[in-house]
Design a protein around this nucleic acid. Sequence first.
DNA 1: TTTT
DNA 2: TTTT
Lengths: 162, 162, 162, 162
Amino acid sequence: MVNKVILIGNVGMDPEVRTLEGGAKVARIRLATTERLFDRQANEAKEHTEWHTITLWRGLADVVDRFVRKGSQIYVEGRLRTREWMDKDNNKRYTTEILADTMNLLGRRSDNPASEGAPAYGGQQQGGYQQSGYQQPTAAPQPQPQSAAPSAPADDPDDLPF
Amino acid sequence: MVNKVILIGNVGMDPEVRTLEGGAKVARIRLATTERLFDRQANEAKEHTEWHTITLWRGLADVVDRFVRKGSQIYVEGRLRTREWMDKDNNKRYTTEILADTMNLLGRRSDNPASEGAPAYGGQQQGGYQQSGYQQPTAAPQPQPQSAAPSAPADDPDDLPF
Amino acid sequence: MVNKVILIGNVGMDPEVRTLEGGAKVARIRLATTERLFDRQANEAKEHTEWHTITLWRGLADVVDRFVRKGSQIYVEGRLRTREWMDKDNNKRYTTEILADTMNLLGRRSDNPASEGAPAYGGQQQGGYQQSGYQQPTAAPQPQPQSAAPSAPADDPDDLPF
Amino acid sequence: MVNKVILIGNVGMDPEVRTLEGGAKVARIRLATTERLFDRQANEAKEHTEWHTITLWRGLADVVDRFVRKGSQIYVEGRLRTREWMDKDNNKRYTTEILADTMNLLGRRSDNPASEGAPAYGGQQQGGYQQSGYQQPTAAPQPQPQSAAPSAPADDPDDLPF
DNA sequence: TTTT
DNA sequence: TTTT
């Protein structure tokens, strides 16, 4: 009932972005998360880097296309998805990936490798808002770097009848 | 940029549910989460119960109305929201609540206090599916107990061009 | 930097539990999370069940051993871990699992398949506390069902100097 | 049973850090999370900034003391905690805060307002490791900027008996 | 009170 | 005010 993944890490290589025949955009990212852990056997600190494959569709793929590069630090929220495929020897193989529901660019805009020589954004306010999700198929054109689309209904807490 | 709350606990009293003039439904729940912690000063285990106020709108409020009762065990995902209000002495006061984005009933259906004398659901499979969110304004009628609405687009991993 | 998985689902088969030569206990669980999604192509609702493999060590493995069975509904918080192994044809293969940091049994105690014919717990209060984590190597003997160990320091908010 | 808050935002002012008589360090941070939402009534996009008060103890307070400043972008994982207090008119008042379990500095080191004129860290690699938690009272000296302490036991997946 |  |  709940299948949630939350990652913060650095992108290992420039993302792959494709457009399907039907017009849907898909992006794939390799993301590294590094943790320190203590090796009980060796009685010493070690570091472990885990590499994640993340798939992003439509609006999120578009944000990736425009703003994510090798080295970008990002936040991803999504779900685990195991795909089944056949290898060259016709053996069933499984690959586990993260299907993204939300993505945010982290750090300052100047951190972003994609900001070098990037489109000017005409000095606009550009929002800096960074929540994005699949929930917004009707997302307006997205001039903001680091952003996909509005995320939530504005149910006014002042209206509360309690 | 990220404001996320994840709670699992027990409902302290029957929820309040209201319908606004405009027709929108709102529900309010008091949820208890209990944790054990170790009191360093006293050198003994203690228990702390935290009480949360959760606001749920529209489809989620409807699920609450039908299936959540005092004693229900639920999963809630949402955001922190601090409301400002004036007390009787005209002092500014603040109240922090959780605005729910998702809610799930936990446990077996028979656990659910709302299941006593509940509508029969015609012996249907009932799925046990429990994801629900505000993202689905177009949610079909929801025959499932423990559920609000479909949660996600079915981007087919088999279509992946990678 | 952040590699977090949060799952709520049902256990697909009785867990495997082993004790290593060094004395450490390990458990492995297969957990199903089911979500409903809407198939855009077919224009119809579908259901997807994702199967997760979860590894739990020491105290958590012990709780699994005693209280988790096929059918149990559990909450798991952990990290993604990809293991590399060689298949029979000497090909490098990868398997992605969840290394658990926390586990909770959900629902009422009577829901728990392990509660049938279970040890009596001497009519004790039994706590019902369900937070558990690897952080507590010094966990006291754990008489509580559904529990591993205290989870948190009791830094007293009343002591706050702010 | 589960009371979890995950925040990513910007620090609104320099943190307050205190040392209690017993020697424990405590820090307090005001953190802003901004989200865009769509106002259904006004039919227009709006922005909402939520301000959170975060309390951090011991090792985390120390990291805050050394590396967090007004403007820092941070990741915080913690729990909701409502404190009761008396106002000047002897009325019971409640304040909800986040008690941090983990904190990470985000962005590149050069982003960090605390890095200006900061201690040199001996030209070291700086690691970029940022997991930190209360779980590690025995943390070794922490030469890394952006870090508190090792986070996890290194249960070796290669040892798995499955 | 932050950031974009 | 819940639950164990």
